[in-house]
Design a protein around this nucleic acid. Structure first.
Lengths: 126, 126
DNA sequence: TTCAAAATTAGTAATGATTACTATTATTGA
DNA sequence: TCAATAATAGTAATCATTACTAATTTTGAA
């Protein structure tokens, strides 16, 4: 994987925006700093970075794939009102892969937990 | 929601095919029995049935949305080789919504757990 | 440093999944 | 029985993502 300005900025954008953005959101955020960036380049780099395990892709939230610079084990909660994505700590459901193996004999390479509901902020907006 | 032959067959097809089919797969399965069915009708009915809680939509597996006639709480394992979807019993991760509330104060209306890995069948194919 | 091979890019076309639209047909309840 | 409502088939449109291509950039060996 050769160096490129574009890939560096994709990563930096993801690290500086804790909103679990989609590829399109990363694209829009990056355009401020690099107006000529191509959407296809953003997709390609996000996929490459995920492939190398430098970032994580989160699917199953809502339609499109989201990306996460945080590669520590953790889960996600998506608000069905505002669509914001919140981190959920690992201790909410530890050792799921191990439990899966115990109960079913299946070996998971990875897994996601996606909670859906209304976040506290949206609840308070009566 | 009025009765329709098409909706009845969508549900029947889902119940008789335990493969967690996508909308397109339901469409193909139904065409044997109802060749004039429209893909848009299949999508509309699957969404309506899911809306009413009669079936479940499973997202986050692989690209497209899958549907499940089983609305008991349970999880899924998708094989990254053959793309088959397996059911994972609820006891692998019980009370996740409650744990979530305890640890974070967030209230989940629903949640999915999607495991990914190579299934035992594909493992045995050397 | 120089330069050619390999990687990356911007821009755009193509694909795949899903939804929107529309004119026609089926269902329903008074 | 009949008009209001819902549902349908067929197709166009949309959205997310990937594929393609000619031009540019990176890289490491000479």
């Amino acid at each position: 994987m050769n160096y490129s300005k574009q890939r560096e900025l994709v990563l930096k954008t993801l690290q500086e925006n804790m909103i679990h953005p989609t590829a399109d959101q990363v694209y829009e955020l990056m355009r401020k700093e690099m107006p000529k960036i191509s959407l296809a380049t953003v997709y390609r780099n996000l996929n490459q970075l995920a492939e190398k395990g430098i970032i994580h892709r989160i699917s199953g939230l809502n339609g499109s794939v989201h990306f996460d610079h945080n590669i520590e084990k953790h889960y996600h909660f998506i608000c069905t009102k505002c669509n914001k994505v919140y981190d959920v700590p690992y201790r909410v459901a530890p050792d799921l892969a191990q439990k899966l193996a115990e109960y079913t004999g299946l070996e998971a390479e990875s897994y996601d937990v996606a909670f859906r509901g209304i976040c506290n902020h949206c609840k308070n907006l009566n």
